[in-house]
Design a protein around this nucleic acid. Structure first.
Lengths: 295, 295
DNA sequence: GCATCCCATCAGTTCTGCTTATCGAGAGTG
DNA sequence: CACTCTCGATAAGCAGAACTGATGGGATGC
């Protein structure tokens, strides 16, 4: 049986690759430069391939490949520890909730307890990681899916998800737009449009590209922030169209929200948590999931 | 910064949990019983929680949780090594192809080279693991999805997938069945039917349960093998209905295949491979993906 | 050509991880 | 009830791993 790759070596490897320097990595990790050098040598010998070019320090192609593995791997390793530790000691500190910006729909907001919650807005794909490592007790992720379909989340760890809410998806158009009067839109109607590319604030477009039959969207302006207000303002100012859940798209000055009817997709919000939510976290889970069942 | 869980300890832990014995695990791992005892003690101290009850040796609740993490974790660790090693040394041995039973549709069979291929039929969720760890060079997985949607695969490692074929999904009915004369069926027509539960041979039903609005299927007989012939024979004999891709469902004596039109799903086959397919593997990838593009 | 920077290598020390040996608790037996 | 057998915990010792500090050598800059 072949022994697993030593995660200790892996950690120094990713640090070296990130900083592009053995000595810097040594400083950051609290080792001597010598130790780091030996770590990399050991890893290269173990895998039987050079991982870094020296001078300048850059990953080789094999090293690039290893980097792709290393991130999720170290994440899972930490997640495993965090998850088990969480079961043992539940200090009942304040509840931390990690959420993507558009995941905070009306149903969620109504269910939040009045006090004792720390809300942390993160990019969509950081949320499972935050929950897995214990940085947050609960996560709220949103995205586009077929009705009643679960979202596709990166599975960094065994997490539990519950559907919490589904809303229609709307296109946000400046009210001067020729299609602004429509009561419904198909994606095909907008084939020639320019889109705002806002993976962290808006609804990710990539998911639709497939349903769209492979036709790529023409991105106009890319927005890397997480502020929905900025995004709606950009859309209202005519910088491009964007997709939002109805509740986030209505009431924007200078813009109208038109429901998207084809393809038949919904904006879905899911609650994600680790093994054993306790105390306030458990209560919030109960409240959100129960509301869903009433629906 | 917290140091990652030692995978060495993790490996002995899962072995102990599986065998429910320290001494047995020691024998299997080539350690002394003392070493295993120390490993478990170290892990429990590291995580700050008891993981096993002794006498009898059983995982605690925290231990159960850890087991859920451990499997994917060790798999990924091996996958990382295998992937990098594969980049370095490409010995150009015979091509090994791992496939789920119903993934071998006509398009795939036509593209296979005449010689030098080892075909290995595995359960659906073992295939990504086999490809990731290098047990197979390529994998073929099938499943049910919305048209043009990718399948949901367990992401054990960064793998690349290509859609290879899509076929209609058919219900296989014994020709004495009252609905056997229909030219098309909706899932709602079959709400009262009994189903064959064959997760490894047929098409998994779980995926449809969601699209079905949460209504569970009534399973009649469970078949754990991977032989499609057995499955079709069972269906023809009236032991229950089953879903199959059209090419696998036609021509079964005593049964008819009726296309499923609602929900709108297809049987999809995907090719999955690791980082850098070479030689014969690369040629096969090329041939399969190219055929897809022609479609 | 000299200084500097950066990684590789070597020797020495510390500390971890494994083995052997022994103990103690619990289950089965006459 | 005593005896034994099994199985896991613990102690001591030893070999090897891991890290440090020092040194070497190939780049680059002045």
């Amino acid at each position: 049986m072949l022994s697993p790759v030593d995660p200790h070596l892996l950690r120094t490897y990713v640090t070296v690759a990130r900083l592009a320097s053995f000595s810097e990595a040594a400083r950051e990790l609290g080792y001597t430069q010598s130790a780091v050098s030996q770590h990399i040598a050991a890893l290269e010998q173990d895998l039987g391939a050079p991982l870094l070019t020296r001078r300048p320090v850059t990953p080789t192609s094999a090293g690039e490949r290893l980097l792709e593995h290393a991130g999720p791997l170290l994440l899972r390793l930490d997640a495993a520890r965090a998850d088990v530790v969480r079961m043992a000691a539940a200090p009942e500190r304040g509840l931390t909730l990690a959420a993507s910006p558009t995941a905070l729909g009306p149903r969620v907001l109504a269910a939040l307890p009045c006090a004792g919650v720390t809300l942390r807005v993160l990019a969509r794909d950081e949320i499972p990681a935050a929950v897995a490592t214990g940085a947050a007790d609960l996560g709220l992720v949103d995205g586009i899916a077929a009705p009643n379909d679960p979202l596709r989340l990166p599975d960094v760890a065994p997490l539990t998800t519950h559907g919490v809410a589904e809303e229609p998806v709307c296109v946000l158009l400046p009210d001067t737009h020729p299609l602004a009067g429509r009561s419904a839109l198909r994606l095909g109607d907008l084939a020639a449009a320019r889109w705002l590319d806002a993976p962290d604030a808006g609804v990710p477009l990539a998911r639709l590209r497939v349903a769209n039959g492979g036709g790529a969207f023409r991105p106009a302006l890319r927005y890397d922030g997480t502020d929905v207000r900025v995004l709606t303002a950009l859309a209202a100012a005519g910088h491009g169209l964007t997709l939002l859940p109805r509740s986030a798209a209505t009431g924007v000055p200078g813009a109208v929200a038109v429901p998207l009817t084809e393809p038949r997709v919904v904006h879905r919000t899911e609650l994600v948590h680790g093994g054993a939510p306790r105390g306030a976290a458990a209560r919030l889970v109960g409240r959100l999931v129960e509301r869903e069942r009433d629906r």
